[in-house]
Design a protein around this nucleic acid. Structure first.
Lengths: 343, 343
DNA sequence: CTGTTAGCGCGTTCAG
DNA sequence: CTGAACGCGCTAACAG
């Protein structure tokens, strides 16, 4: 009867803290104290060590549900994104989940479903992950977060506008677009076209504004613009409108790499060589940029770092801090789709 | 004092089931029964209705942690994938999460991090989402799941081999490859090249085997093969080896759309026109297939349905059932990268 | 048909 | 310095 912990091999369920306590010959609270890391000055070092070893030996892991219930915290954060089917958000998730894991947090993604982006469940049990410690929202406005309760929020890639309300982490997209235009202008281009993404998000408004300002600063620079959805077909159509102009641009600046793929198609259809007859640039530097032929000059966005910094900011916020707004530097990646304009 | 629920506006915390019970003038267990949906014959319809209305009015949502603790279940499943940075797995997640949500389950993805695919946390608190009801593992072997405990498992896209051990959901990749070869053979091709993905997964072994068998069945058909990693550069190099052959293939069958992009580059470098001089096919039908020029003939894999069916199978398994192995039909998508061989 | 009670596993008092 | 006792919110036995 007193041989606690030994000989009870039949029960292979996960050990509880009480099992650890019994096996180590101490009480449950001692186990809790030791494993919680706040035992110094309250438990003798020898006991602490013994407890740690027993826990290790038994393969003890605290029961998350009990922990959450007691602490009123879930150690789970929600990553809200506009669409899960974009190559951009994978790295964001990776970055967030990586630093989250380092702090004992899990990350769950919302929405699970592109089709109906904001449908709260009908039954009260339909959205099990309602219990959440905080929210990271990427590429959207604060308004879009109605229905998520009053959890602490960090806004990612949503512009500094929300900075008063919530901590923000953004890319320095203006710098990126300025670098693109400077690169092109340095090559000798003067007639610019901008293929704008017809998407109402801060980042695209910022890209458009930056292009306009940058071209304005190029002596003799002119800018024409066409907008389209972020898919190959729409981008191709928009590009055709630009390329059909009497004084057609010699360089097309795209809001997105995928749109650049559409430009390639439009150019080929007109018999225009890239980059000989037409220079093209993208934005984001997703996989497709290197799959295109010629490879695409574009702007690399540190998407993973966005997730990391966002999670760090959220952690700071949860800890009672007031994280500063941050803007992540971007990088112009010059490949083979840009060259001096035709003579 | 008896005005329970009213006038206590100061407390804006989430209402508990006890709050609902008080406000409705019934006991906690009645609330539990009614909201749990199993009250018929045990609670009067009138009371049930009253409870539902009060719950609604108070905006009551059950506390997940308490529920989980009591039930010993988490209503969370783990989706284990080889790499999160592949456009293939987004739709799988969507499918899984969609049907999961319909059943009150959440889906969390593992690993959060491509870099170290199987690192269990160092501290006992590092992997908070260890508490899981079941696992869906995609594109891997059962062996790779060591360290995830003994949760019920469904294997996705991992071949019927594991079928004895765990329920499986697969694509009919053999059908897909046979359709590709038949399409090409119908166009008149006889010299085939296979650009194999050098990845040790069932799906790629199946693709390779299917190509070999299908070409074998083409009268006069010959097959050469080169392997490479699934990225543009490796695929390009592998394609160059095939295209440098004295009797070079007139059709290149690729294991993956991204590899086809590498073939495009190799072909252009040699001055070969696609599809005039060389037909190319992909596999998966990810976004890049339509971004390439000419657009890629490929095989569409119903990735989202894989997730849906996988989750359905897991649900059935959790409910004590024995789901049948299933193979999802695939579809040949003929675009512009295939044509009759040069004369 | 409804209310009372016990306990899931944990972290945190409060006695000893 | 350690152990016993309590309660987080919920569900499932058991009483009434």
């Amino acid at each position: 009867m007193s041989e606690a912990g030994a000989g009870t091999g039949a029960r292979s369920a996960r050990p509880t803290s009480r099992d650890v306590a019994q096996a180590a010959g101490v009480s449950q609270s001692t186990v809790s104290l030791v494993l919680g890391g706040k035992w110094t000055g309250r438990v003798s070092p020898a006991t602490a060590r013994a407890v740690e070893e027993t826990a290790e030996r038994l393969g003890y892991r605290p029961n998350a549900a009990a922990r959450n219930l007691r602490l009123g915290t879930t150690r789970t954060v929600l990553l809200v994104i506009p669409t899960i089917t974009s190559p951009f958000f994978g790295p964001v998730y990776i970055g967030a989940a990586r630093v989250a894991a380092r702090h004992g947090f899990g990350v769950v993604v919302y929405p699970p479903d592109d089709a109906r982006p904001a449908t709260p469940g009908a039954s009260p049990f339909a959205v099990p992950r309602e219990a959440i410690d905080g929210i990271m929202a990427s590429s959207m406005t604060l308004d879009a977060l109605r229905g998520f309760g009053r959890a602490p929020v960090v806004m990612l890639d949503s512009g500094p506008a929300a900075a008063g309300t919530a901590p923000t982490v953004d890319f320095a997209v203006e710098d990126g677009m300025r670098a693109v235009v400077a690169h092109l202008a340095g090559l000798g281009h003067r007639r610019f076209g901008h293929l704008a993404a017809a998407v109402d998000e801060w980042t695209f408004r910022a890209r458009g504004g930056a292009v306009a300002r940058a071209v304005h600063d190029v002596p003799g620079g002119t800018l024409t613009r066409a907008a389209g959805a972020i898919d190959v077909r729409s981008a191709k159509e928009a590009a055709e409108r630009l390329l059909g102009l009497p004084d057609r641009p010699t360089a097309l600046v795209c809001d997105d790499d995928l749109m650049a793929a559409g430009v390639y198609k439009a150019a080929r259809a007109r018999g225009l060589e890239i980059p000989g007859d037409l220079s093209v640039t993208g934005f984001d530097d997703v996989e497709i940029a290197r799959a295109l032929e010629p490879e695409l000059t574009t702007v690399r966005l540190p998407a993973q770092e966005l997730g990391e910094q966002g999670m760090l900011a959220l952690l700071e916020l949860l800890g009672g801090g007031r994280p500063e707004p941050r803007a992540l530097p971007v990088e112009l990646v010059v490949r083979a789709s840009t060259a001096p304009p035709p003579a």
